[in-house]
Amino acid sequence: MTMLGMETQRTSILPRRGGLAGALSDTFWRHPKLLLFLMLTPPLLWLGIIYIGSLIALLLQSFFSIDEFSGMVSYEFTLATYAQLLSPANFDIILRTLLMATLVTIASAFIAFPIAYYAARYAQGKWKALFYLGVMLPLWSSYLVKIYAWKLILAKEGIVTWFFAKFHMAWLLDGLLALPIIGGNSLSVSYLGTFIVFVYIWLPYMILPTQAALERVAGNLVEASADLGATPRQTFRTVLFPLALPGIIAGSIFTFSLTLGDYIIPQIIGSSRLFIGQAVYALQGTAGNVPLAAAFSVVPIVIMGIYLWLAKRMGAFDAL
């Protein structure tokens, strides 16, 4: 210690470090760009080459088409595969998925707001932690187990039917299931069931960004609004909601995108009509029509691209 002290007193420039590690360390200090390059190369190789490369390889395939007679992919540039997307059957799939994603997003925003608002404004100390874990635990618990739980719940002999029967409201459930399109034999084979499960599974993704946005709203803004004579409804509409909006939009990125691409939920709980994810899965698997599957998967990419661009303009990324 003293030796080192003496030495530094004599000269303000430290001697060159010995050893490979020292030399390497000095080199990095003198050339920070080199260190940056070395740090970025592995992740960029992985994500930039393997991942982006795969994505591009996939997208390129959408410009090929499948030969109708031989069933083989013909490697010639064509837009015919994209034209197939517009055929009524395929276009229906896209519209159905978009509608479901929109409804799921709106419903989760409605259910998420009270939880996020209570957690951000009123919950303190232990309650705050409880709310946080109360959202995190369902978010991180197994996706399939959650779907499985809903299969149990929505089954014809399950707890929902029992609940409605117990409270003499079986007519209500039967009425819902008798509705055209959204109804079905039981909740677990209806769009209604698919919708409930989608909302359930993606809800935490909406709560967290909404709460993050609300945390940043100063409490005295709400009080000032009340002091100036606004009713709670007016305060919500003119103060709280606009300030929470970036968070809600950030959450909607998740709910919307995840619903667009999911193929497991509608496969297990839902009717036999397809969503985009199921169409992609079926086309690349049993049908072997990879070009059309690729064209189908371009749809959510394009939609999310537009969505993200709009969200960025509304300031949603600051709320993430």
């Binding site: 691409g261 992609v280 690349q284 959510p300």
Partner: peptide, 15 residues
Amino acid sequence: IALPGIITGIALRSA
């Protein structure tokens, strides 16, 4: 993670 899992999956599979 932002892109739907099915796209990541099918992209890797085709690669």
